[in-house]
Amino acid sequence: MIRVRGVSRTFVEARTSARVPALDGFELEVSRGEFLAILGPSGCGKSTLLRLLAGFDRADAGLVEVDGAPVTAISPRRLLVSQDPALFPWLTAAENIGFGLRAQGRADPARVEALLVEFGLAGAGGRYPRELSGGMRQRVALARALAVRPDVLLLDEPFGALDALSRESMQALLEATWLASGATVVLVTHSVDEALRLADRVVVVSPRPARVVGSVVVESARPRRAGSHPELRERLMGWAVP
């Protein structure tokens, strides 16, 4: 479904004119409907990859293909959700969720209502983002993304700013939603536990330039519980660069 071959992307820092290689000859493949976690320390390489997949940026070299076609533009079929929920502050939660649907002329209040319930936001639909907690905002962001039923869901450390409790419930919610949707998910995270909790396969990446250094397959029944793969955890930690 997703093919990344020999992809390179280098940034030039404005002030110092230094060249920062984010990706260098990066290779990755993701099957349709797979949940892939990309694990690695904070740094711009992983985010850059997601942005390339979403079409927000172009690679300097190499191939980025989704569903057989090269990625050239931004599309609701490849939805990116970041740590910053980027909700539109002048729209209520419900209006935010319905934004993509309305933008494509397919307004669907019933679906918005169903999503509000599914994401535990029933009753909060009429509130503005500034009246919502961090966890609720991230839920609205996810619901907004899933409303348009993307083929590919790209998540860039979406739960990084949440407290531990919210993170746990969000992970359960994400797993359930993904199972029902059949979308392909690429999740970038720096939490080993989160990766093991959610993914079919975990890929470890070294920082700047990002390069795959290891990969494990997580064969475990779903829905999962946290902390059930100590040996895999050890292997992943072994690859992780401090």
Partner: peptide
């Protein structure tokens, strides 16, 4: 980020 999110959602 807001403008990109809007474009991503198909606006």
């Amino acid at each position: 980020a807001w403008l990109q999110a809007a474009e991503n959602l198909g606006a």
